[in-house]
Write a protein that binds this DNA or RNA. Structure first.
Length: 277
DNA sequence: CCCGGAACCTGAAGGC
DNA sequence: TGCCTTCAGGTTCCGG
């Protein structure tokens, strides 16, 4: 699933193909994925030059010379693929941005969850997102302030995009394991030392995943079609039944707020202040 | 405001 | 082998 490291990788690898190019035209095979409606979406994009691509949380933001912003969210199964052959697009291609140099951006998305929104003001979509966890300003003190007073499970708070932007199910599990914290710990119950460990773990896990070009556990691939490598370094995510790499206890999966959560029951206990991790 | 659950989708995996 | 059910999870919406 595309989370912060996957979206960051897609952004970095799309930039050489896209920045400075014009969108010649747009093909929509699934009109439900765009806002505003298809006609206006196409006409406002046609002929526009893409000046930059940035990322905010799990959103890709294409800046256009018209002042409009194209916000793309890959959700569960989306990927953006670069190619020149329009006659044989990737399977499940829902939209195509045809560029003025013969390249095309294919939005492949088997489950049709992905979305593209064309807006004049990005804040309307991303304005409520929490801080970027890899920015310098995101300190252990920042994190402590976000967790204080919350009774919700730690895992649920990490997944809340309005608290911290970009963490999804896989990296929440990996960060919690690295910090030795149980996903059901009430978020506000962490001691300062535990918050520090969690802060360090979040940044290490996300940085390592970006360096590995993302995790291809599902249908995620990079714009050139290559897979990422980050999942080979996962300690617990999607490894039910395997042994904990630290203590060899069989890993478990439980459901937290409807999300499958992988953990080591020995390294990640519910007891307040257990510093095993 | 907070929480939980359904809905959106469809391929993959598991059960019988 | 094949049909049927369940699972997967990012986000939004709705009810309590």
């Amino acid at each position: 699933m595309p989370e912060l490291p996957e979206v960051e990788t897609v952004k970095n690898e799309l930039i050489p193909y896209v920045v400075g190019r014009r969108i010649a035209s747009v093909t929509l095979n699934w009109e439900g994925m765009v806002t505003p409606a298809a006609g206006q979406f196409r006409s406002r994009l046609a002929g526009r030059k893409i000046t930059t691509i940035t990322r905010r949380g799990k959103y890709l933001i294409f800046s256009l010379d018209s002042g409009d912003l194209l916000l793309i969210h890959l959700r569960m199964s989306g990927s953006l693929l670069v190619g020149t052959d329009v006659s044989s697009p990737p399977a499940y291609t829902r939209a195509v941005l045809h560029l003025d140099d013969g390249n095309n951006i294919f939005f492949r998305d088997p489950r049709k969850f992905g979305r593209m929104r064309l807006v004049a003001d990005a804040a309307a979509v991303v304005g409520r997102l929490g801080p970027e966890p890899l920015e310098a300003g995101f300190t252990a003190i920042t994190l402590a302030g976000l967790l204080v007073g919350r009774k919700a499970p730690l895992k649920a708070v990490l997944l809340d995009q309005n608290v911290i932007a970009g963490i999804g199910n896989m990296y929440a599990d990996e960060a919690l394991f690295a910090a030795g914290l149980h996903p059901l710990r009430p978020a506000g119950s962490l001691k300062p030392e535990e918050v520090k460990r969690l802060h360090r773990s979040i940044r290490r896990v996300l940085t390592a995943a970006i360096n590995a070009r993302g995790a291809s556990v599902s249908s995620y691939v990079r714009p050139g079609g290559q897979k990422g490598q980050a999942h080979f370094s996962f300690k617990v995510a999607h490894r039910r039944g395997e042994k904990c790499p630290v203590c060899a206890t069989p890993l478990e999966r439980l459901v937290v707020r409807g999300r499958g959560s992988y953990l080591c029951p020995k390294c990640q206990t519910l007891e307040n202040g257990d510093l095993r991790g």
